[in-house]
Design a binder for these strands. Structure first.
Lengths: 350, 350
DNA sequence: CTGTTAGCGCTTTCAC
DNA sequence: GTGAAAGCGCTAACAG
């Protein structure tokens, strides 16, 4: 059976389709009498009516959906942000379409979607963006892209979190434990966010009178974290390493394990962003939590503001970074052998 | 500046909009002369024309996009499947919209999208489905839902991998290493897939003359794996555990670590599905690989077949499960103390 | 090879 | 409180 239309409902309820539309959309202007209203609602239910979204979108010239462009679906931090976006968007009556940039390759699917009117706007993680793709976009459309976690050249807005401060806090924590020989592992300096982490790292090192040892990876995967950690070990024999993203951490743990280095007895590890992974790693990972979820919420809200015609500048999420102390960092001890046979004292998870 | 329409392009190229449409869509029926064709193409480029997707969808009564319903974005196995779906769909000219079921809660967003004509069909991971949501769907629409990794009551089609055999292979591997005291950790028996894993586990245990020890979790998270492993240890003191999903594994490692049990020296661990996580865990995790990526590809293809009017039955992906040997399983040894101080011999990753 | 026409299903302005 | 009419931008059948 064909999908019911407004006309079908109108026919059954013996009213004009336009009235059905108004009633079903709770149009405040022209309200129907209680009786006809009921007739219409009944008819709609009976015919199992649902609006044809393409027709509505065409008419309204808007889709009430936004696109969320992520670099990697499995990344736990992305997931946190995505949840925030999904939640706030839903509250504001918007649907969200998620795309994984690595999948869509050179296809520019999202840019296409925006220019075709598939979505009203795009929320883009800066590290998942290839700025060249935006070139062909008109100014009107460019305005409808909101970068998350960094600025994008040519765009006047962004929603960011304080990466630099988080990196500083990581260093400070390590220094507080007596570490002087630490190496930071950072993503390629292609975007704003990894750059800011390096800036914070350097700043804190300098402030503490430590030489900043920095390793730049070639990518964003666990494997990159693994390789960098291996290099950090052989190059510097550090007492602490700072893989600056959740993705790198699993690789770092693996490299340390492979080299028979215990965490935190031999090497302390700390990272940025708190997630379920950091909680369930062995040992659980100390980190500086950034308000990822809130960034998602705020970004969704701001983008919808933009769609509604408002101007948004560069905003930073207000909630400050917070140290989440777990078991991957420890005091530097001269005589490590005393620790080797120590029994693990680990508070069970609640 | 307003988005250019076919009329605008037609006006500039001095032809009828309908001809523009035909040319831009490479309509095989009516082709234009080389000269007008060029005029049209030039005009389109000059005006930066892109089709209005809502108008096209309305006209064609189809959207060339499918919905992918996942339980959890961060789950590495889901990610494998998603990649397969994305890839094959793209090849066949379809876009994919991803939704995370836990986010959309009781909202039935996807069911809504299907009935509103937002998507032409849905690929649904069975464990992310609440069958009650489908009730209000007409038969015509129900046909356009293809369950992945299990059957759904009322639906005549599915794309599956051989979970039961994979579970059997896990047991067989363990038995081959001398294990007799193993416990399997399985998801709630609400859907086809976890049920089949239990079936395979039991079957292999029985075949090998072992009593099947089974723990059923209440959920699908790392935390559930953690709690179940803790229980497995205190209840059975097993020499091997089989957390039956990637998600459980991190929790299992954590529980073992917390109890000071070494992998694989004290307890062997094996799971189903191969992913980057299994590779980078410490120690790297032995598993039975299932063709998750292929399942995604096949599912996408089959769903598109369905959309095109074909009938699909219940199909299983042909590629057989395969044991991926890493370092989390070992021979059961009577005197464990000989192993304790052994140096780790671990081949570095290539 | 190209133009005319009609209509997909919806919303909204304007009448009554 | 309700109906009539127009049109969003596109495609496809038909005409010439």
């Amino acid at each position: 059976m064909r999908k019911a239309t407004l006309r079908d409902v109108g026919k059954l309820a013996k009213v004009d389709p336009s009235l059905v539309s108004r009633v079903l959309n709770n149009d405040p202007n022209a309200s129907a009498s209680a009786r006809t209203k009921k007739r219409i609602l009944d008819a709609a239910k009976k015919l199992n009516y649902t609006t044809n979204i393409s027709a509505r979108n065409l008419k309204l010239a808007s889709t009430k959906t936004i696109g969320l462009l992520l670099s990697d679906l499995t990344n736990p931090t992305n997931d946190l942000v995505a949840h925030g976006v999904l939640q706030r968007s839903a509250e504001l009556g918007y649907d969200v379409i998620i795309a994984n940039h690595s999948d869509i390759g050179g296809d520019k699917t999202f840019v296409k979607m925006l220019s075709q009117g598939h979505v009203d706007g795009i929320l883009a993680f800066v590290n998942s963006v290839n700025e060249a793709e935006f070139e062909e976009l008109s100014d009107r459309l460019l305005e409808r892209i909101l970068p998350m976690n960094g600025k994008l050249t040519g765009l006047q807005c962004s929603v960011t979190v304080d990466d630099a401060l988080a990196a500083e806090m990581c260093v400070d924590h390590l220094v507080g434990l007596g570490h002087k020989n630490m190496v930071g592992i950072f993503a390629p300096q292609l975007h704003d966010s990894p750059k800011r982490r390096v800036v914070g790292f350097k700043k804190a090192c300098t402030r503490n009178g430590i030489e900043p040892k920095i390793l730049l990876t070639h990518g964003y995967s666990q494997r990159d974290g693994y390789l960098a950690t291996l290099e950090a070990i052989s190059e510097y024999s550090p007492t602490a390493i700072f893989p600056s993203s959740n993705a790198y951490v699993l690789g770092a743990y693996r490299a340390l394990y492979e080299r028979n280095l215990r965490i935190p007895d031999d090497v302390s590890v700390i990272t940025i962003h708190n997630s379920e992974v950091t909680e369930y790693l062995s040992p659980p990972l100390t980190n500086v939590m950034l308000p990822a979820n809130e960034m998602g919420k705020m970004a969704a809200e701001k983008l919808i503001n933009i769609i509604d015609g408002q101007k948004i500048g560069h905003v930073t999420v207000g909630i400050p970074p917070r140290l989440v102390l777990r078991s991957s960092t420890a005091q530097v001890i001269g005589d490590k052998s005393t620790l080797s046979s120590e029994v693990r004292v680990l508070k069970p998870l609640s």
